Simulated assay, not measured.
Amino acid sequence: MKRVLVTGAAGRIGSAVVAELLGRGVEVTALVLPGTAAPVKRVRWVEGDAADPVSCREALAGVDGVVHLAARPAPHRGTPYEVFGGNTLATFTLLEEAGVAGVRNAVLASSYAANGLPFADRPLSPEYVPVDEHLPSQAADPYALSKQADELTAAMMARRHGMNVVALRYPFVGDLEDRLLPRAEQIAADPATGAADLWAYLDTRDAARAAVLALQATGTHVFHVAAANTLAPYPTLDLLRRFHPATRIRAELPGRTTPLDLTSAERVLGFTAEYELVMP
């Protein structure tokens, strides 16, 4: 691809995606909210809202692919109407305009939270592990529901416009020093704090690489992407038995193996995480 549009390009994953694309010699257009643009060489900055068709049309000019990361990232980042309505309208608008413009490859940030566990108002457990994209959702918050809707929108747009669309279900994402290490220390002291996330994580650099690899996929897909191990310094099976005793364990999970099914992303995208937190 010669040029890729990245929405939410000033965010944690977005800025890493921009750097990954530039490192591969791909030109970038960045769609960001007004006032958040930061000058970067070889990046065309467009200020606007991904839910606005006019902004999308301007940003999509000359674009071969789209990585859509702009969203309110949690149910408390606005009213329920702003979180669900804003996230879903932005995804619908951007993919519709991309399809009309003839863009054939799009990637969007979904979330592990689509299953409803991370932001539930009471402890929930998955029906089974490893968690895959077919796990029945227990969503009861607007963010989880917005990610479910985004995945359905992606599938519809693929049929409507003949697009290739990949939704990546990201877990807890961060850089090593500022997020992953503090989170690991918190979980080590109290593993209950990571139970809803199944102690899963992904380094920001791997999150960016997964998005760029997904631009090359054909068809419509939903993938979990995460590090192969957990942030907890305890055996995964022990954690599951303690915090999710009713969950069916359908595969061997030796050591600190993440209880997420990563096989689809590895098979289709050739993606496995390169950066893992090494426990002492």
Rank of each mutant, 00 (worst) to 15 (best):
R44D: 13
A38N: 08
L168I: 13
L145D: 02
P126N: 11
T257M: 06
Y234A: 07
F92A: 13
V67W: 01
D64L: 00
V6N: 11
A211P: 15
L202A: 07
L269P: 09
P254T: 10
D121M: 06
S125D: 05
T204K: 02
E266G: 03
I187K: 10
V165G: 14
H76W: 15
I13H: 02
D238I: 02
T236G: 13
A149T: 13
A98S: 12
R122W: 11
R267A: 14
N87K: 11
A30Q: 10
D203S: 12
A9L: 06
A196T: 01
S111W: 10
V40K: 13
P123Y: 08
V173G: 00
G270E: 10
L69T: 01
G48I: 12
D121V: 03
R250T: 15
L5P: 03
T220R: 15
L31G: 11
D190S: 14
C56Y: 05
A10P: 00
S55N: 05
A227M: 01
P118A: 03
T204E: 01
T93E: 01
A149D: 09
L198H: 06
A101M: 10
D49I: 01
L168G: 04
V43P: 07
L31P: 11
V4P: 01
A19T: 12
L152F: 11
V225P: 10
I187W: 05
L237P: 02
G86I: 11
A74V: 00
R122G: 06
N164G: 04
P142N: 09
G8I: 06
D49P: 00
P171C: 05
T91F: 05
E276S: 10
G99V: 01
G11T: 01
G194K: 10
L262C: 11
L31E: 14
D121A: 09
Q186M: 15
D261T: 08
D175S: 04
A149I: 04
M279S: 09
V28P: 01
L31A: 07
L237Y: 03
T263I: 05
P182H: 01
L124N: 07
A154C: 14
K41E: 15
Q148P: 00
A232K: 05
T153C: 05
H134G: 14
L213K: 09
D206C: 00
L260A: 12
A113E: 10
V100F: 09
A211N: 15
S125H: 02
R183I: 00
P80H: 13
A184K: 12
D132K: 08
R44G: 06
A37T: 06
L94Q: 08
A195E: 14
H244T: 04
S125L: 03
V66K: 03
A246M: 08
S137K: 05
